[in-house]
Design a protein around this nucleic acid. Structure first.
Lengths: 211, 211
DNA sequence: GTCTATAGAAGGATAGAC
DNA sequence: GTCTATCCTTCTATAGAC
């Protein structure tokens, strides 16, 4: 069924508005009325296009999860040299989350309040591709750097923690910076973090299991 | 006004139930009815003791925030040798969050959806105490280890990221472990992480700014 | 202090006109 | 496809008996 112009436009407007509201408020606190208002249309049109709040949310969630997931995992799929990759990772990802600061907390919060949704949609992805990609491209480098083969998930989680956590806890970090005399703002802090995190990780893996 | 036994008991029961429900569901999805049910009392008693959902939540939030905050910050206030402290930190904190797995996502989620609450209650704490504690006890050690003086917040955030993030993203991590052939469970993963994270951090700081 | 009953508001969803 | 009007459920909160 091909959609005509006006239909496409309205559906698109609703979808954009829904992404904004859900990401900002979370599922439970989001209001259909607010989504309608932001889309500049009538509330009942939401149901016309997406049937229910649940279904609208599901489409939005899947879209945002993929956006986040591909970003987070992307770097591990590249096959540049390790250190270059790490530096690039922290640059790119921090920049990305500066554009999407609510994305991490949205994804993590919704998933912990409803794990079924995650399993339903993303339970059947072939994650071995990622593993093989990481291990295939980098197994050699990793052991060279002293990361044990069985520790690759620990390593991945460690790398992404350093960027995702500060965004997820943005308000706490901001308060902390304010109250301890950091003169610049959160954005500057995260810009500095691009370098700090890179050096931290590179220094760590250079000397793992080699004391 | 001193409270008698039965009053104390009921208030306590409500409070415990409220902590459980709010932590599990978040403010917006939590239901007064469910809190009453779990406390084994009538719904209107909630209002008798705590007036409104908002006020009940506020008491619960403050309690849980303090619980989390003192845990997270605690280690930085101790004055043991650096490496010993780091190892102890990851042991203790991972054990703590294994007992309270929903705490991180609860705190972070509620704060990003309502930053005012954080500022209202915790905006006036004297965080310089923490800074001075970290810098006072450990400034020397830190520079010895190659952490620049102005990077102490970056360092603190880094250290806590490594434990808090995996709990906040618990379901994602679990799925990832399942799908990539990790034979043990999340709990084992986090137990292994006690060692991995310690070694990671210690190796990193041993060589910061010393390449 | 604790309960029952109910008010009152909000929000999701649908019917039906255009 | 879009709007108005409205239904119906859910949830917070209060009144009032015991």
């Amino acid at each position: 069924m091909v959609k005509n112009d006006s239909e496409k436009q309205t559906e698109e407007k609703i979808f954009e508005a829904a992404m904004a509201v859900f990401e900002e408020k979370g599922f439970a606190a989001a209001r259909m009325q607010e989504i309608a208002d932001r889309a500049g249309i009538n509330k009942s049109l939401l149901h016309y296009y997406f049937r229910s709040k649940d279904q609208l949310f599901e489409v939005v969630f899947n879209k945002l999860f993929e956006k986040m997931f591909s970003m987070v995992i992307g770097i591990f799929m590249s096959d540049k040299p390790f250190e270059e990759k790490i530096r690039e990772y922290y640059c790119e990802h921090i920049r990305f989350f500066q554009q999407n600061p609510m994305l991490p907390i949205f994804i993590m919060s919704e998933i912990s309040h409803n794990p079924e949704r995650l399993k339903k949609r993303f339970g059947n992805i072939d994650y071995t591709k990622i593993r093989d990609s990481v291990m295939g491209f980098h197994a050699e480098e990793m052991s060279e750097y002293g990361i044990k083969k069985e520790d690759w998930v620990q390593f991945m989680i460690t790398v992404v923690s350093l960027t995702i956590f500060p965004f997820a806890a943005k308000e706490i970090v901001k308060m902390f910076l304010d109250q301890t005399g950091y003169t610049k703002g959160f954005d500057d802090f995260m810009n500095e973090r691009k370098v700090f995190a890179s050096e931290f990780v590179i220094n760590a893996i250079k000397h793992m299991n080699k004391k």
